[in-house]
Amino acid sequence: MTTFDIPTTSRAAVLTEHGAPLELREVPVPQELEAGALLVRIEAATVCGSDLHLWDGSLAGSQALDLPVIPGHEMVGSIIAFGDGAERDTFGAPLKLGDRICFTHASCGQCDHCRFDNQPTLCTNRQYYMFTNCSRPPYLVGGFSEYVYVFPNSGRVRVPDEVPTSWASAASCALRTVVHSFERIGKLNPWDTVVIQGAGPLGLFATALADHLGAGRIVTIGAPDDRLAIAKQYGATDVVSVFEHPEPDDRVAAVRSILDGAGAEVVFEFSGARTAFTEGLGMIKEGGRYMVTGQIDGPGKEVPVRPGFITRQQLTIMGTWSGHIAEYRKALHFMKIARDTYDFGALVPNRYALEDATEALSRMRAQEDIKPVITPHGTGGS
């Protein structure tokens, strides 16, 4: 095992009760690493909407939870220790101590989803950061911590030198999920109109990627106004404010008005709003494609749908869950080549110390911060 000095404990912000303030704890640091594992020093952990749902308990409808856990799965860490055989990333590039990496949840590599279907995000035996109990080894299984244990089966990729740490952290969930969604929905053409439901991190990243890929017209729906301003900077040709159009039918009518009564060839749902799916069906063109990414399952999430409408309109409807290491690498590459075109720093302007993690969650929930950045070793950094 190749290492820097390994500390014996790590400070971590721990969720012990849904809705309660996170508890700052000293968590044991594993002194021996499994073959293929890594130990990293967290340089930045950005807050994801899933962290909010974990905190308030609403994620329990779609994911088994066993508290206490350390929230956070969007993160960049610098390597401080290698387990045997872990000196290369998933794509064969050499890694060294101090390198910044992004890394995935750990798929088993053995089930049908991993081997036969080539869809490792559906792995039935997946090890997850932020959902794994932190009172048992390997303990450091969430990003709101000074150090994190990288599972042996976690994909990992080195962060390009040109990509700032906070950007890369946001890429490691929000942007890689967007990349996965775009890959599943298929090619965008210059004559296509794209509607993006949501002006949070996913919706804004999607706006930039749709622009980069050459969509002819992009309508981004969301709020508040400062986020819609970023959407315009990222290439949205039109925006629809949910404050100005508070009812679902109003938003459908607004999009149809912008498009002269027509629908869009492609609609992406990144909002998570309960009514978004049925709204999206009202915004789509006959024969169009609909990608649903922002929804979580659970009680109270049901909405009425007329299946015959889908049949008659000959729609293609798909869903996306998470992302695997190829999407991480592509997301980082997009940031690298597009860094001078889109100000990705506008999504991650604010830094929070580890002891302020609850404040970061609260500010994101109140839409006062688009994507807070937790820096466990200080509030500076890129």
Rank of each mutant, 00 (worst) to 15 (best):
F4N: 15
S10E: 10
H18C: 03
L22E: 04
E23V: 15
R25E: 11
V27S: 12
P30A: 11
A37S: 13
A37W: 05
V47M: 05
C48F: 01
S50M: 07
D51E: 15
L54Y: 02
L59A: 09
A64N: 11
G72W: 00
M75I: 04
A81L: 04
F82D: 06
G83H: 03
G85V: 14
G92N: 11
K96N: 01
R100S: 10
I101Q: 07
I101G: 07
C108M: 06
C111F: 05
R115L: 15
R115P: 00
C123V: 08
C123G: 10
Q127R: 15
T132S: 15
Y147M: 09
V148Y: 02
Y149N: 12
R156S: 09
R158C: 07
R158S: 09
R158V: 11
V163S: 05
A168I: 07
S169N: 10
A170N: 07
A170K: 00
S172I: 09
R176H: 05
H180K: 13
H180Y: 08
H180N: 15
F182H: 12
F182K: 02
V195I: 14
Q197G: 07
G203C: 14
F205T: 05
A210T: 01
D211V: 00
A215I: 08
R217Y: 05
P224T: 06
I230V: 15
T237I: 01
V239S: 08
V255R: 06
G261Q: 10
A262Y: 12
G263W: 04
E265C: 00
T275K: 04
E279M: 11
G280L: 02
L281T: 12
K285A: 15
G287N: 11
G288W: 05
V292D: 09
K301V: 07
G308L: 14
F309T: 14
Q314K: 10
L315W: 11
I317E: 08
M318D: 13
H324Q: 15
A326Q: 12
M335F: 14
R339T: 10
D343E: 13
G345L: 10
E355I: 07
L361A: 01
S362P: 00
I370Q: 04
K371N: 06
T375H: 09
